[in-house]
Design a protein around this nucleic acid. Structure first.
Length: 477
RNA sequence: CUGGGUGUGGCGUAGUUUGGUAGCGCGCUUGCUUCGGGAGUAAGAGGUCGCAAGUUCAAAUCUUGUCACCCAGACCA
C-alpha cells in the first residue's frame, strides 16, 4: 500500500474547500489567471479535457440529427430587446461595444451572453414551410456575462459552451426535444464524467429568462453544495411570437414554431474537480482523462529502461491514451505530479521489473498498487480503467445518496442546513413567496423538482398549505 | 455591488508598528554524483517591493487614489 505523503502545495479540502479548489485548478495546470479580471487561460491540459467533452457530446448531437452552425458574437441591442423577459434577465450582465474603429456606433452591439435572439432572427428568415422543420442547430462558442465575482470554471466573464437551438412544428415536438437533450446530458454526466445527477424541472423563479419551462441536471459537490450541470429549455412559442417565426402548415395555415435551447459549459470541469478530487489533487474519470495512463521509468539512465517504457507505450497505444514522463525529475516527483493531474493509472517500470517481465500499476483513485506481468498488460490496463470509471461513479453516487434528507417544516429545514450542506427534499406549494422566504431565512435555493417524485408530506415546507410539488433544496455554486 | 483579507524575483514568504536603499525557502541554469514516493553537492542567474501621485535628504515601510486576486454574501451556465 502506498505511503501517505503530504503535498504541501495543495490545501486540505477539510481545512478550506475553496482554497483546495483553487490549489487543484492551478497545480493540475488546468488554467492560469489572465490579465483580464475574471477571465482565465485554459492551459493545454485543461483544454484537452474540454476537447474530449466536445468530441463526446458533439457525436451525440450529430447522432440525434443536430447540425453545427456559427453565429456572430455581436447582437444589435434592438434584437436583444425583442423578448421582454429575456432582455430583463440578461441586460444587467452584458458587455456592450460602443466604439468601432474610431467611430461611435449608431447602434450599440451586445457581446452575446447567449444567442437565442440571433438564432430567432435567423430562423425568422429561413423558416417558411412545415417542410423547413424541425431546425436542429447547435453551436460551440464562448459567451460573455459580466459577473460580479468569478471563480475558475464555475463563473468567469467569458466561458466556453455549446448552445443548441431548435425550432419545431408543434409544442409536443419541442417538449420531446427538451427532454431528449436533458437525457443526453444526464447520460453524459453519469457515464462519461462519472457524476450522478438529479433530473428535474426548475421552479418558476429559477427558470431561464424567456422560457416556458426549464429542465436541469443537478449534481452534488464534495462539500454538499449543488452545481447545475446542464439546462434544457422549452420556449413554447414565446420567442416565435416576439420574432415572428411562422410557417405554413399542411392545411395552408400560418403557425408559430415551438422552440428549445439547451447548453453545457466548461463549468462541468469545475464539477469534475469538486466531485472526484481529493487532497492529492485532481482525479479524472478515465473516459474524460486526456492521459489515461502515464508511464514513469525508474532509473531511466540504466540500460534498457527507456526503451522498455517506449515499447510499452506502443503496446498500449491502441487501448488507452498513454504518455511517458521522460523528464529528468526523480520518480517520486513524477508520482506526485501524476496524482495532482489526476491521471487515472500510473505505470512504473524499472530494472527490477524488466528482469521479472513485470511492471507496477497504481490506481489514482485508491492508490492501490498492482504488480502485473507484461504479457497480460493490455487486459489489466483496460480492466482497471473500466473499474476506476465505475468506482468513481459509485463513490459519488454513495455520497449523493448519503447526503439527501427530507424535511416537513421550516424548523427541520433550518436545523438540517445549520449542520452542513446537503440536499433536502421537501414539499413546495408553488408560491414564489415561499421560495423567497426560504432563501432569505436559510440561504438555500430550490435546485429542481425531480422527475422521480416522492410524497414527503402533503403540505408546503414553508407555509403549510396544500402542496403537490417536491423540490430539492440546496446551497448552490 | 456589499463586507473581510492579500499584493515584495516564477512560487511561498520575512521586513511595514518605529522610513536608511531587500533577506530566506522552493523553483530556475551549469557540472558531478543520484534515481522503486517530491535526491545530494558545488557554482551561478534572477526583484522599478501591484500601479499612480504625494510627504521626505531618504519610501517596500507614511498619506491619498487606483487596479487585481482570494474569501463570505446578493446574481448566474
Amino acid at each position: 500500500m502506498a505511503k501517505e505523503i503530504k503535498i504541501d502545495a495543495i490545501t486540505d479540502m477539510e481545512t478550506d474547500f475553496a482554497q483546495w479548489y483553487t490549489d487543484v485548478v492551478k497545480k493540475a495546470e488546468l488554467i492560469d489567471y489572465s490579465s483580464v479580471r475574471g477571465c482565465m487561460i485554459l492551459r493545454p491540459y485543461g483544454y484537452a479535457i474540454w476537447e474530449l467533452i466536445q468530441k463526446e457530446l458533439d457525436s451525440k448531437f450529430k447522432q440525434t440529427g443536430h447540425q453545427n452552425v456559427y453565429m456572430p458574437m455581436f447582437i444589435p441591442e434592438s434584437l436583444l430587446q425583442k423578448e421582454k423577459d429575456h432582455v430583463e434577465g440578461f441586460a444587467p450582465e452584458c458587455a456592450v461595444v460602443t466604439i468601432g474603429g474610431q467611430e461611435q456606433l449608431t447602434e450599440r452591439l451586445i457581446v452575446r451572453p447567449t444567442s437565442e435572439t440571433l438564432f430567432c432572427d435567423h430562423y425568422a428568415n429561413i423558416i417558411e414551410s412545415y417542410r423547413d422543420l424541425p431546425k436542429l442547430y447547435n453551436q460551440w462558442c464562448s459567451v460573455v456575462r459580466w459577473e460580479k465575482t468569478t471563480r475558475p470554471f464555475l463563473r468567469t466573464l467569458e466561458f466556453l459552451w455549446q448552445e443548441g437551438h431548435t425550432a419545431h412544428a408543434t409544442a409536443e415536438d419541442a417538449e420531446e426535444e427538451t427532454i431528449k437533450m436533458l437525457n443526453i446530458y444526464a447520460d453524459f454526466f453519469e457515464n462519461v464524467l462519472a457524476i450522478p445527477v438529479i433530473k428535474g424541472k426548475k421552479t418558476e423563479r429559477e427558470k431561464f429568462s424567456g422560457a416556458m419551462a426549464t429542465y436541469a441536471i443537478e449534481s452534488m459537490m464534495h462539500d454538499g453544495k449543488a452545481l447545475q450541470g446542464g439546462t434544457s429549455h422549452n420556449f413554447g412559442d414565446g420567442f416565435a411570437k416576439a420574432f415572428g417565426i411562422q410557417y405554413t402548415d399542411k392545411n395552408n395555415k400560418l403557425e408559430y414554431v415551438h422552440q428549445t435551447s439547451w447548453g453545457v459549459s466548461t463549468r462541468m470541469i469545475g464539477g469534475i474537480i469538486m466531485v472526484h478530487g481529493d487532497n492529492n489533487g485532481l482525479c479524472l474519470p478515465p473516459n474524460i482523462a486526456p492521459i489515461q495512463l502515464i508511464i514513469i521509468p525508474v532509473a531511466m539512465h540504466k540500460e534498457g529502461v527507456l526503451e522498455k517504457a517506449r515499447n510499452i507505450k506502443e503496446q498500449l497505444s491502441s487501448i488507452a491514451r498513454v504518455e511517458i514522463d521522460e523528464t529528468d525529475k526523480t520518480p517520486g516527483w513524477k508520482y506526485s505530479e501524476a496524482e495532482m493531474k489526476g491521471i487515472p493509472l500510473r505505470l512504473e517500470i524499472g530494472p527490477r521489473d524488466i528482469e521479472n517481465n513485470q511492471c507496477v500499476l497504481v490506481r489514482r483513485d485508491t492508490r492501490e498498487k498492482y504488480i502485473v506481468s507484461l504479457s497480460n498488460l493490455e487486459n489489466e490496463v483496460s480492466g482497471l480503467l473500466i473499474k476506476i470509471q465505475k468506482d468513481l461513479y459509485d463513490k459519488a453516487k454513495k455520497h449523493l445518496d448519503e447526503n439527501i434528507v427530507t424535511a416537513k417544516n421550516m424548523e427541520e429545514l433550518e436545523n438540517i442546513f445549520s449542520v452542513k450542506n446537503v440536499f433536502v427534499k421537501a414539499m413546495y406549494c408553488g408560491d414564489e413567496a415561499c421560495e423567497i422566504e426560504i432563501k432569505e431565512k436559510i440561504a438555500v435555493t430550490s435546485r429542481c423538482m425531480p422527475f422521480e417524485f416522492e410524497e414527503i408530506s402533503t403540505k408546503c415546507v414553508c407555509c403549510g398549505k396544500e402542496a403537490k410539488n417536491m423540490v430539492v433544496w440546496g446551497k448552490s455554486y
